[in-house]
Design a protein around this nucleic acid. Structure first.
Lengths: 115, 115
DNA sequence: ACTTTATATAATGCATCGGTTATATAACTA
DNA sequence: TAGTTATATAACCGATGCATTATATAAAGT
């Protein structure tokens, strides 16, 4: 079984892998919105929007609240920060390895000059 | 039709949405590896590894080269930077909106104090 | 030429995606 | 209670995902 952290990253990156969902997030970053408002902005049906929101909710990229019949969605910042953290860590590991390689090559050059 | 940039982000985030693929990337961040070496590290079959590499290649998260029969994979840094950039931009937009909301609330408070 | 090694591809099975239409539910309104 | 509004859920469809096993290809070695 995967770790819980890995499963969360799965859900987050998967949610971000769809252009419509990223657009929804960008819309929500400017303020909360309900299903109907989003439906207008993206010309797909209401059920399609509801399902996208469910995916975003599963990844905890959004939270939903209640306002009479409306169930406005709003951004939850923690999840995307998790994704950012993974990327950052990954880049650091790569950077470290790249620098080691750099030294290795420099070393190799020195040896060749000597012989 | 989606923009080319959006399609690239789709591919990148999708590639990152699988734990095995992220692990492969982390392994590759420490140095190039061929299909067989990866197969040992992750207990899945060789065709499964080949397919994961294809997904990573499609997202341009890796490049492959040739070394006799081996086709070692290595990290390509540009793609993950694109993902990082989207996240950063998104966070900034959210931050801006959050600050506007802050001001709005502060304003609202002032009004209430006055009345 | 034959064998070995490394990898790719095809065929298959089962699950999930992303959209649709049709229908159900929940919350308010007259 | 009946009607309206906002959203959710179910059923379906065609496409795709991810794993498997079996087979093909590419490059070297003998």
């Amino acid at each position: 079984m995967q770790s819980a952290a890995a499963a969360r990253l799965d859900a987050i990156f998967f949610a971000l892998s769809d252009g419509t969902r990223r657009s929804i997030l960008e819309r929500l970053a400017r303020g909360e919105a309900g299903v109907n408002e989003l439906k207008e902005a993206f010309s797909i049906t209401q059920p399609a929007i509801s399902r996208h929101l469910k995916v975003l909710e599963r990844a905890r990229l959004i939270r939903r609240s209640r306002d009479a019949q409306r169930r406005p969605a709003r951004i939850e910042t923690h999840a995307v920060a998790e994704a950012a953290k993974w990327i950052e860590h990954y880049q650091q590991v790569w950077e470290a390895s790249y620098q080691r390689l750099d030294l290795l090559l420099a070393d190799e050059l020195k040896k060749r000059k000597r012989t």
